[in-house]
Computed example of a mutant assay.
Amino acid sequence: MGREVSGRLVVVVLGLPALFCYLLLGTTTTLHHHPPPTEQSSHSPPTVGSCPTCGLNFIVVSDAPEGDLDDLWWADWDEVQRSRRAALYFECHHVRKTRLKSLSKLVNARRYLYNLLVDDRHKAIYCYVPKVACTNWKRLMMILSGRTNETNPLNISSHIPHEEGVLTRLSGTRIKSSVLRYKLRMYTKFLIVRHPLERLVSAYRNKLVKNSTSAADFKRRYGVSIMKKYRKGVSAQNISKSGHGITFPEFVNYLVETGQDSLQSLNEHWAPYVDLCHPCTIKYNIIGKYETLDEDSEYILRKIGAPHDLHFPPLVASRTASLVADHMASLTQELSQKLYNLYKFDFKLFEYDYPNL
């Protein structure tokens, strides 16, 4: 009798994993992550799962209504935004007061709002940051604000969105202070950031290394003077008048010294986020990141009520991230520390790590 009972217990114990897998396979599962709710992604594709207890693989299929899946996606991204805003507001309490500008100063000294573009149609304000997908987002702002008849952002030449007067800036003197305050308070405000070092290396390569018309101008404006000051053992007469050949350590030395004197004198392509967009004074509703650019851009467009067929252009993969380590290795530890100090608040406010510190 005892052996019979023991035998039954063994059968039950061995059968539990199989029962678990059966119940798992028979349960309808709603996926937690899925593509943004666009016309092209109305259903979530099946994914492969596994049962660690029984060693079986199975297909997870969701039969939840499309609207439910969309709601789940928006809920996920709303939570992502809440987390980013919370981290930003927490770190803002640790930023030196001398580094911050009050709302009154921003309103009265409009030059500080130069990078903030406004779309009155959708009641949206975008703070653009060079080297963080700003060309495509400026194209979108042109379409959103009715500054072009184009409906496909890629049909707009890349130089046009950067031309003065194409988009409305909050720095415009014609905007009354009361209206400006209202827009800063009530409009949907967003910015997009990127790992500060990745952005810096991208700006260095694009403006001081590449052979392009834009780079040639930057080399003449910055490269020549930087090499004359920081290139050791070479006379000024032997410095190329084209400004070509500036090294990354020379560029960083220039940034560190110039930033110590006056952060406002740094070009917008390498000025810190905290000085371009004033995230501790202006309460941004949406914080986008280059690492999740597709999802963040879709979220922004849908939140501001953009046309349903307007989407961020397909993202072209960047290789800059793979180049950061080599560029940083060319710096001394002392220079690396000074570079971190210059962009410290960008790292902290937007939750980015700095290597070797």
Rank of each mutant, 00 (worst) to 15 (best):
R3M: 11
R3K: 13
R3D: 12
V12P: 01
G15P: 06
A18V: 15
F20C: 05
F20Q: 03
T27S: 15
L31A: 07
H33R: 08
P37V: 09
T38E: 04
S41I: 04
H43P: 00
S44D: 06
S50H: 15
T53A: 15
C54R: 08
L56A: 10
F58S: 05
V61S: 11
V61E: 11
D63S: 15
G67M: 12
L69F: 12
A75L: 09
D76Y: 10
D78C: 06
V80S: 08
Q81A: 10
R85L: 14
F90G: 04
F90V: 07
C92W: 07
L100S: 07
L113H: 00
Y114F: 05
D120K: 13
R121M: 05
P130C: 14
R139M: 11
M141V: 08
N149I: 12
I156V: 09
H159R: 08
H159F: 14
G165L: 14
T168N: 12
R181F: 08
Y182L: 11
I192R: 06
I192D: 01
V193L: 03
L197K: 03
R199M: 00
R205E: 10
V209T: 04
N211S: 08
S212R: 01
T213R: 15
S214L: 13
A215D: 05
R221Y: 08
Y222T: 02
G223S: 06
G223K: 07
K229I: 02
Q237A: 12
Q237G: 10
Q237S: 08
I239R: 00
S240M: 03
F248G: 01
N253Y: 11
N253D: 05
L255G: 04
D261Y: 14
L263T: 07
N267C: 10
A271C: 13
L276C: 00
L276P: 00
T281R: 02
I282F: 10
I286W: 07
E295L: 07
E298Y: 13
I300N: 01
A306P: 01
L310V: 09
H311Q: 03
F312Q: 01
P314W: 14
V316I: 15
A321C: 04
L323Q: 13
A329K: 07
T332V: 05
Q333E: 06
E334K: 14
N341L: 14
Y343M: 02
F345V: 03
D346E: 02
D346N: 02
F350C: 00
E351G: 04
